[in-house]
Design a protein around this nucleic acid. Structure first.
Length: 530
RNA sequence: GUGGACGUAGCUCAAUUGGCAGAGCACUAGGUUGUGGUCCUAGCGGUUGGCGGUUCGAGCCCGCUCGUCCACCCCA
């Protein structure tokens, strides 16, 4: 029945053109009708066994597509990054690399696939990342592997595995690459996203934290992003245990006011009680004990020193007593970076941040003031909307992680920045990232000239010039058309006539003026003009 | 994982009460000899995201599904 409908529908256009459409027909064939040929014998056959390899399913768990479009679309939450964005990605990577070189961070990459236990050990069993977002599966050897959901764990593993503790400390490393988390996609939140990460091992002083935060901040500000650092200290595990007891005690008394989620949080992850957005829970937070007040003297001192360093570095920051990050391995410093939304906000925070560091005892109160501001003002709807996915990155100190993963006790700090989110910021100022077209286009006319053009291209390349060309087009008109689309400044025209004379025509694409140049002098000539 | 909005050509969008799926841009080729931007002509390009239902007839109505976006959740 449905096929009949289609036939009727399709008839008309076919009749109009009064010709069969073999092309259309061909496109319909997507899946081979015949089953795929049997797989070749396995390359690695089980120990010395001769004979046919065991028959396996051709593709594990995948069926042949029945619909034309099946399997032809990027899967949920995955995105192609296309050349139209390349100027932003290049700028980002270029700045990251320069910064890394300047501060002497060594570049490295870790595998996308790791033993799943690596992440369970580091990030923590009860965290959302491990519990419900991580891609985990058994590979063909039935090993349980995970696609990396974040960068630090792999770097720590590598640090231990390659004995980097024998290198002069601190060891400073940086990387960039894909991370995968099975979340519900949204703008600025994908199942595959890219991070640039910086890690520093073997320095327990707060100045290391300051250095790292400054690195993160500089990377953003070098790119013209107005960033703000939100920072907090969650102390040592002992500090936290004491605080959590206090916190749970506080909330237990108000249990009846809590939302359902928070009741669960009280048992599972009490720190998260603090960032509940439920109307009923919010007011409770105001009176809640704050972790800074429960830090040990040494933890407090560490934090204060860090803040003084940041002040010295003139990095705008805001204390956020409710900042707790979703990974278990953090100790002491935790921070996040946000793109500032309005100029107004920026100035307020700068002013207040400066006050804060002075009085150690009063951190709590000052912070509360800062916190209240945005809630009360709600300047524009815009500002609020942007807030949802606007964390550009975050990080913190993880002094216990290396040891916990079997290495020698090694203090460490690190951060990761979301590349897609940075690119989103950069795209707001396209004028700052205009792609640069090649400066010269080489056009040719006739067989001999085309060949000569090839060597001319080589010559220009060796001179470091960016050159556009299209060797398959034969008409000059078409080639100039392309040159124009490339927005080049000059086009070199090489035809039979010029070949014989040993000259080349150089055309200024803006004015249309042409000049004839001795072909031996073309390179110095161009160099002078560009 | 929960709730909501939206899916028409590569892009931006049309299509009367359910009645032959269109335009602009982009792309390709022409407008006779070796010269781009403007202009003219033609071509390419769609199972209207997919599957099913209602109907003589569905881009339009209904159900499911996939995808995007938004708010939660969480984070980069």
């Amino acid at each position: 029945m449905p096929s009949k409908k289609k036939a009727i529908k399709k008839k008309k256009p076919a009749a109009k053109k009064s010709a069969p459409k073999p092309k259309k027909k061909a496109r319909v064939i997507f899946a081979p009708k015949k089953p795929a040929p049997k797989p070749a014998p396995a390359l690695r056959s089980p120990k010395g066994e001769v004979g046919p390899a065991p028959v396996e399913k051709e593709v594990v768990g995948a069926e042949e597509p029945k619909q034309k479009h099946e399997g032809l679309q990027a899967i949920r939450g995955m995105k192609d990054i296309l050349p139209k964005e390349q100027q932003y990605w290049y700028a980002l990577l270029d700045h990251a690399q320069r910064l890394a070189q300047f501060y002497d961070f060594g570049w490295m990459q870790t595998p996308l696939l790791e033993d799943a236990r690596l992440y369970i050990r580091s990030i923590g069993r009860g965290t959302d990342i491990v519990e419900k977002e991580m891609y985990v599966f058994e590979d063909r050897d039935l090993q349980k592997v995970a696609i990396r959901p974040e960068g630090t764990a792999g770097v720590v593993r590598a640090y231990i595995q390659h004995g980097m503790l024998n290198l002069p400390q601190p060891v400073k490393l940086w990387y960039w690459g894909s991370m995968f988390r099975h979340e519900r996609p949204q703008k600025g939140r994908y199942r595959e996203h890219h991070q640039v990460g910086f890690e520093l091992f073997g320095d327990a002083s707060p100045s290391a934290d300051a250095h790292l935060i400054a690195t993160a901040y500089s990377l953003l500000s070098d790119l013209g992003i107005n960033a703000e650092v939100r920072i907090n200290s969650i102390g040592t595990p002992e500090d936290r245990a004491r605080y959590v007891m206090e916190l749970v005690g506080y909330y237990r008394a108000k249990r009846s006011y809590l939302c359902e989620d928070c009741k669960k949080r009280m048992i599972k992850n009490p720190l998260r009680l603090l960032d509940c957005k439920e109307e009923s829970c919010r007011p409770l937070r105001e009176e809640a004990p704050q972790i800074v007040d429960w830090l040990s003297e040494s933890s407090k001192k560490f934090f204060m020193e860090l803040l003084e360093d940041l002040d010295e570095l003139q990095i705008p920051y805001a204390l956020d007593p409710f900042l707790v990050r979703g990974l278990d391995y953090y100790t002491h410093t935790v921070f996040e970076l946000y793109a500032k939304v309005t100029v107004k906000e920026k100035e307020e925070e700068k002013g207040e941040a400066a006050e804060v560091i002075e009085q150690a005892g009063e951190i709590g109160e000052v912070v509360e003031k800062i916190e209240e501001k945005p809630e009360e003002e709600k300047p524009e709807k815009e500002a609020e909307k942007e807030a949802a996915q606007s964390a550009l990155g975050g990080g913190g100190r993880y002094d216990l992680l290396v040891e916990q993963m079997g290495g020698r006790p090694t203090p460490a700090v690190g951060f990761g920045l979301g590349m897609e989110r940075i690119v989103t910021e950069l795209k707001k100022r396209p004028e700052d990232f205009e792609p640069k077209p090649p400066s010269v286009f080489v056009a040719h006319l006739g067989q001999g000239a085309r060949r000569k053009a090839l060597s001319l291209l080589q010559q220009l390349r060796l001179e470091g010039m960016r050159v556009g060309f299209n060797l398959s087009k034969t008409s000059l008109k078409a080639q100039l058309d392309i040159a124009d689309k490339h927005k080049v400044r000059y086009t070199l025209i090489l035809g039979q006539k010029e070949m014989m004379d040993g000259t080349i025509i150089i055309r200024d694409m803006e004015s249309g003026a042409q000049e004839m140049i001795d072909s031996n002098k073309i390179v110095p000539y161009l160099k002078k003009m560009l």
